[in-house]
C-alpha cells in the first residue's frame, strides 16, 4: 500500500517539477528543467544504489559512502587540482577528464576501504562511523586550507562545489553520466541475488559458494563509480544516503535487493524533486536544496542513532 503510494507520488512530483510555474514554455524553461531532471534522476540513482550496496557490504544500516569519506576526498581533490593547475587548466582538462581522474581516485579509495573492511570484518559500526565523521571533518579542514591559497575566483568556484545543486550540470555531462550509470545499474540489477547472499555476511556467503573477496572488490568498484558521478554532477549529499536507504527498507518490508534497490532510487529522486520544489515554490529561493537535505537527513540520522539505543 505504502509502496504503491510511493510509486504513484513519483510521476506526480516529476510533472510538478517540470510544469509548475513554467508557463508551459517549451522552448526555454522546460528544456532547462529537463536537464535538471536528468541530473536529479542520475544522481538519485547513484546515491540510492551506492548507499544500499555499501550498507549490504558493511553489514549495517548507518554507514554510507558519503559518511565514510568519499565526498570529503572528492572535494579535497578538486581543491588540490585547482591549486596545482589553476581553473584555466582544469577547464582545459574538461569535465570528462576531471570526471575520469576523480573516478580513478574514488576507485583507489574504494580499494583501500575494501581492504580495510575485509580485514577488520564487520567490526564495531559506531567506531567506523565516528572515524568516518571525523575523517570527513578533517578532510573538510584540509580543503578549506587549500582554498585559502587559491585566488578569490577559484575560491568561489571551489566553495560552490561544496553544496548540493542541480544547476551546474551541463546537458552533455548529464548525458555521459546517465549512460555510465545506466551501464552500472544493469550490472547491479544482474547481481541482486549475489547482493542478497552478501548481506548474510562473509562466512555465510563463502559457505554458499561465493568468491567473497572478488564480489566485494567488484561491488566496491561500482560504488566508487557511482559516488564519483553523483558528486561531480550535483555535489556532496552527506547524510542523504542513510535517509534514502532506511526509508526504502521501511517501505520494502523485505531485505531482497530486487525490492530495496528500485525503491531506494525512487525515494532518492522523490526527495530531490521535493526539495527543489520546496525551494522554488515554498521558500522562493530563500533556502537551498543543500540546506534542506542536510537539515532533514541530518535530523533523521540523529533520530535513528538515538532510537537504536546502542544496538546496531
Amino acid at each position: 500500500m505504502m509502496r504503491r503510494a510511493a510509486w504513484l507520488l513519483l510521476p506526480a512530483l516529476v510533472l510538478a517539477f517540470l510544469l509548475l510555474g513554467s508557463g508551459l514554455d517549451f522552448n526555454y524553461v522546460i528544456p532547462k528543467r529537463l536537464v535538471r531532471l536528468g541530473a536529479i534522476v542520475v544522481a538519485g540513482v547513484c546515491i540510492a544504489l551506492s548507499s544500499v550496496i555499501f550498507q549490504t557490504l558493511a553489514g549495517n544500516r548507518v554507514l554510507t559512502p558519503a559518511i565514510m569519506g568519499y565526498e570529503g576526498i572528492y572535494l579535497l581533490f578538486q581543491a588540490v587540482l585547482v591549486l596545482w593547475l589553476g581553473t584555466g587548466s582544469v577547464a582545459r582538462l574538461g569535465a570528462q577528464g576531471n570526471a575520469l581522474l576523480s573516478m580513478a581516485l574514488m576507485l583507489g579509495y574504494s580499494w583501500l576501504l575494501q581492504r580495510w573492511l575485509l580485514r577488520e570484518g564487520r567490526g564495531d559500526v559506531y567506531r567506523l562511523l565516528l572515524l568516518g565523521l571525523v575523517l570527513t571533518m578533517v578532510l573538510g579542514t584540509f580543503t578549506q586550507f587549500i582554498q585559502l591559497k587559491t585566488s578569490p575566483g577559484e575560491f568561489s568556484i571551489l566553495q560552490s562545489l561544496g553544496y548540493t545543486s542541480f544547476n551546474r550540470a551541463q546537458p552533455a555531462q548529464v548525458l555521459y553520466s546517465g549512460l555510465l550509470v545506466a551501464a552500472v545499474a544493469v550490472l547491479v540489477a544482474r547481481g541482486t541475488r549475489v547482493l542478497d547472499v552478501l548481506a548474510l555476511g562473509r562466512d555465510q556467503a563463502i559457505a554458499l559458494g561465493l568468491d567473497h573477496g572478488r564480489c566485494l572488490r567488484l561491488q566496491m568498484a561500482l560504488i566508487a563509480v557511482l559516488v564519483a558521478v553523483s558528486t561531480s554532477l550535483v555535489g556532496p549529499t552527506a547524510f542523504m544516503g542513510v535517509f534514502v536507504a532506511n526509508i526504502a527498507y521501511a517501505l520494502a518490508r523485505s531485505a531482497r535487493h530486487q525490492v530495496t534497490l528500485p525503491l531506494a532510487c525512487a525515494v532518492a529522486i522523490g526527495m530531490f524533486l521535493l526539495a527543489q520544489l520546496l525551494v522554488e515554490h515554498l521558500f522562493n529561493y530563500r533556502t537551498s536544496v543543500s540546506i534542506l537535505v542536510n537539515l532533514v537527513c541530518g535530523a533523521y540520522f540523529l533520530a535513528l542513532m538515538v532510537r537504536t539505543r546502542g544496538t546496531p
Binding site: Y126, R286, T287, S288, N294, M305, V306, G310
Partner: peptide
C-alpha cells in the same frame, strides 16, 4: 539512551552538532 558505548556518544554529539549547524545555515541563508 541505556546502552551507550564509547563511540556512540560522540557520534550522536557530532550528528546533533551537524543538525544545529544545518539550522544555522538555514537561518543564515
Amino acid at each position: 539512551i541505556r546502552f551507550t558505548n564509547l563511540v556512540l556518544v560522540p557520534v550522536i554529539g557530532l550528528m546533533y552538532g551537524s543538525v544545529l549547524s544545518a539550522i544555522a545555515e538555514f537561518h543564515a541563508y
